[in-house]
């Protein structure tokens, strides 16, 4: 199930600002409370694919250690795609919440 939402997860992790791959993975782990503990390498093909789709931009920088580091950031299309996916997800979560007998408000509460 997680695989089908990786694009949205990665876009959301980059919503806070530009970051390199390792930081994106750390952010996903932190914001999901450790629930999304992916094989770390799988995030990189997603970053490349999203960049190819024009949802992310990237550039090489040099880390303090002297290593080359690729930093990714959301493009304008990326921000739009994330907003669209967030809206879809909230509707979906509210509908599932309804099916489980929760109110739509309760399903949306974590986002407030």
């Amino acid at each position: 199930m997680l695989k089908g939402h990786l694009d949205m997860i990665v876009l959301a992790a980059l919503a806070g600002g530009p970051a390199h791959g390792y930081a994106v993975i750390a952010e996903i782990r932190r914001r999901s409370g450790g629930a999304f503990d992916l094989p770390e390498g799988t995030v990189y093909p997603v970053l490349h694919r999203l960049e190819q789709k024009g949802l992310l931009g990237s550039r090489w920088t040099r880390a303090e250690t002297g290593r080359e580091r690729r930093v990714y950031s959301l493009t304008r299309s990326g921000h739009r795609a994330l907003a669209h996916q967030q809206a879809l997800w909230r509707r979906f979560a509210a509908a599932i919440g309804g099916l489980f007998g929760e109110t739509a408000d309760a399903a949306l509460r974590p986002n407030r």
Partner: peptide
């Protein structure tokens, strides 16, 4: 070309993880 780029990214990631 992709192999070169991924190699650099993966190296940065792995060395960072070790650090």
């Amino acid at each position: 070309a992709l192999a070169r780029r991924v190699r650099l990214e993966a190296e940065d990631h792995l060395r960072e993880a070790v650090a």
